[in-house]
């Protein structure tokens, strides 16, 4: 078989100015009439590309969310409220109106606000890669962009849903959090979002490769809500129970949020730094996993 020959652009009589792109080992210069980009320009072009792709995907996700069924978007916005009402009703039936001197509705609602942020990292953020696989045929669109776009959209929707939750409680029952430490609340939300992105990217990568990963994770995270201290106070648990649950970072995040919103006392094993480190670790691992698999993902 004949070897491929190197055809030099200048052999084909290109008129005008030529730019040298690279010099090969055998001293053949590759030239083109198109000016090569400097590293700074390349970086800028890369950033512009990233920005426009994320926007494009964001609009697309929003449109599909809206277009598929109007009820879909209402469900997203009302999910925390509905979850709160259902669980609080159980508490109210067994005649408990307050938990740690906070109205049951507020207490449960605040738990769902944090829990649902992390939950979005299990579904629907990881499914972004698969459901956008056709758009990966555009050279500029990378698998990670689909995850980012979905993440941004989900966080936005969740923020509106959370505001809706507090607002409806204020309108209907006249209760509201006192926010003695609002900064701590934002910290808890920020760490939860980071954890959500890390989990979302990691599950997105391996869920795309192996279908069973997504299914398995969804089955095993069924009891996650109960194990995250969303619907009860950690302080009501015996020490052994608390110790076991404190492996779950969501427990710490919810405790931090409640501390910031209502001034409740965190449980004995509370350690927000653990949640911070774990979130950074998972996010780091997910980026490494993405970097290692970035081309394989496109082929899938």
């Amino acid at each position: 078989m004949t070897l491929a020959r190197v055809t030099n652009a200048s052999n084909y009589g290109i008129m005008g100015k030529c730019f040298s792109l690279a010099v090969l080992k055998n001293h053949v210069t590759i030239s083109s009439k198109f000016k090569p980009l400097t590293p700074a320009q390349e970086l800028k072009a890369g950033f512009t590309r990233f920005q426009s792709v994320i926007w494009a995907l964001y609009f697309k996700e929003f449109k599909i969310r809206l277009g598929k069924s109007k009820t879909g978007i209402i469900w997203v916005l009302l999910e925390p409220v509905i979850a709160m009402v259902v669980i609080s009703t159980i508490w109210l039936i067994i005649r408990r109106k307050t938990i740690e001197n906070v109205h049951v509705m507020l207490y449960i609602g605040s738990g769902f606000i944090i829990y649902l942020i992390v939950r979005r990292g299990i579904t629907p953020i990881p499914q972004g890669i698969k459901s956008n696989s056709s758009l990966l045929n555009y050279p500029g669109v990378k698998p990670i962009d689909t995850i980012f776009a979905r993440f941004i959209l989900e966080m936005w929707l969740h923020m509106i849903a959370s505001i809706l939750l507090f607002a409806s409680l204020f309108w209907i029952l006249g209760i509201h959090p006192t926010f003695p430490d609002p900064l701590l609340c934002f910290q808890a939300i920020g760490i939860a979002a980071m954890l959500s992105l890390g989990i979302g990217l990691l599950l997105g990568i391996y869920g795309t490769f192996y279908e069973s990963v997504g299914k398995t994770v969804r089955v095993f995270t069924q009891p996650l809500m109960i194990m995250s201290g969303v619907i009860y106070s950690m302080n009501d648990l015996p020490q052994r129970g608390r110790e076991a649950l404190s492996w779950n970072p969501i427990v710490h995040l919810i405790s931090a949020f409640r501390q910031g919103a209502f001034g409740t006392k965190p449980f004995a094993e509370y350690d927000l730094l653990y949640a911070v480190y774990l979130s950074i670790f998972i996010l780091g691992i997910s980026f490494i996993a993405y970097y290692a698999n970035r081309f394989r993902l496109i082929q899938k």
Binding site: L3, A4, V6, T7, A9, Y12, I14, I30
Partner: peptide, 10 residues
Amino acid sequence: DVTLTIPDEA
């Protein structure tokens, strides 16, 4: 192991 160049105006 393919090496080839497609020129500008090809």
